[in-house]
Nucleic acid binder design. Sequence first.
DNA 1: CTGAAAGCGCTAACAG
DNA 2: CTGTTAGCGCTTTCAG
Lengths: 333, 333
Amino acid sequence: MEKQTITIYDVAREASVSMATVSRVVNGNPNVKPATRKKVLEVIDRLDYRPNAVARGLASKKTTTVGVIIPDVTNMFFSSLARGIDDVATMYKYNIILANSDENSQKEVQVLNTLLAKQVDGLIYMGHEISDEVRAEFSRSKTPIVLAGSVDPDEQVGSVNIDYVEAVKAATTKLIEDGNKQVALITGPMRQPINGQYRLKGYKQALDAAGIAYDESLVFETEYSYNAGMAAFKQMQKIGATAAVVGDDELAVGVLDGAVDAGVSIPDDFELITSNNTKLTEMARPQLTSIDQPLYDIGAVAMRLLTKMMNKEDIDAKTVMLGFDITERNSTK
Amino acid sequence: MEKQTITIYDVAREASVSMATVSRVVNGNPNVKPATRKKVLEVIDRLDYRPNAVARGLASKKTTTVGVIIPDVTNMFFSSLARGIDDVATMYKYNIILANSDENSQKEVQVLNTLLAKQVDGLIYMGHEISDEVRAEFSRSKTPIVLAGSVDPDEQVGSVNIDYVEAVKAATTKLIEDGNKQVALITGPMRQPINGQYRLKGYKQALDAAGIAYDESLVFETEYSYNAGMAAFKQMQKIGATAAVVGDDELAVGVLDGAVDAGVSIPDDFELITSNNTKLTEMARPQLTSIDQPLYDIGAVAMRLLTKMMNKEDIDAKTVMLGFDITERNSTK
DNA sequence: CTGAAAGCGCTAACAG
DNA sequence: CTGTTAGCGCTTTCAG
């Protein structure tokens, strides 16, 4: 009365061969006489046999499943990465166990452990920052790990990114060249390396190169939300900023709408460059100029790198940097 | 020299008990003397033992993993559902294997089979339409299945939705009451039940109730994309429509921007109601009035329903309809 | 090219 | 309350 499963044993019996042989044909082992292979395949088809992946996993110690830790699937930035990950995973016959972490370190550790308990062959981690607890789990684990779109200051695991320093530097420089003297940087917590170490560094480099003094009050540390963007715009208006590099698209749309709602004309009176080039940049009015990170590719390359690691192939470089562009739209002159 | 795993047997030996006892404490079986439980827990902790979920799955025939088929994680509509699904899955100790299908029937069947091979305890399917091949797989499978945000005309499996007929009827009615004589309906393929059977029906009912004749040329069948929306607006302008009910938010933003770009004032000269109330509706300018489907809840309830089915609990109703609202913003008068 | 047999790590009766 | 004993369904030597 249960889901009466037909096993490899049933197939063996019906085909008058041993389970070993059935196993061989299922696994594409070439050491099987074409005739018997044909016979077995026919029985498999007739019985509608489907190998039990769990049993397979136990016996072979491979699950062809990788764990993916994502802050929030609902966030376009991460879901774009996830799509790239899943596509190449599928390409290499892996499945993905997706787990939302809300960037909560405790949840991350928790999820990490259940993923390892499920014997995933590899792990992809997304998130703006790696807490010490998570880092500890990483180094304790023998399972291959790759970070997608997040930086690992000590390069213990693989990672795929763009050069955030250069990207922000380029964006800031463009704004300066457009004639802006007061360019703001609006982004997430400086505690997170991508902001505190990379974006801020690129921003300062651009300022330096243009001979403009760094003004701390032009740097806004905020959460990545639409409302935070609207609030940030008000602040900027107060201190006279005329342009901004923004670290997140939703945040940038907030800044944009804050300006529009305040009757400030973009890009004439205020210029804006955002960072992720998600669909939002095209849907906003005016459309947003953006650093163009190849999100899908970052995910895809991360997964590809992971397949190599799981396969124990030689890796040229554990840390890969993909190129970026700046896509100019109508929020800049 | 592989990842030297410590097994339940190691724990048993170290704690001087049988593996059965270790298994009992790991599984919270109350039939263990507190003292021995304590001893075992201590050893587990000391050895850093982590039960192998694959072996567990093979022995118990439960994987505490459910398969989730999603057209595209990158689509806010579906990712919102997915978030609801994952949250309640986590709540009930399940993990999610997420697979993108691109609404491609062949891929769906393929994915369905690998998911079943991995012995998932249940399945959640998202997608606008269920092909005959997929339907066939559904009925062939003994694994519990729930549809989230998609309708199943023959109710073979569980499903969670809102009443699309009523929702579109309400939206259309509002537009008519605002004085529009030419209300368009812009949505996906009529082949898909949600459009052809439900939305169209609700649209016609509203027209009927208002004594307005149905005009086929006011119904647009298109893909769910920003560009399709811009194109649709041009069409509508040609035939003199003054309002539209749109089946997808990204599509609606396209319509909106098409209007804005053409210098048409919204809502004065054209009114718009969209369907999914994703963040996009708030980021657009003017902000979009929308049918408010509780996306997260649909996902959450679908997963909850699935847990009941996996648990063989009694279900009051396999098909559940959640309520909806219409959130008025600035694309309607 | 094929079969026999020993596990993989854990759960689940069944005794006691 | 605890231990023994079969498996779960498949992979993988090891012979032949």
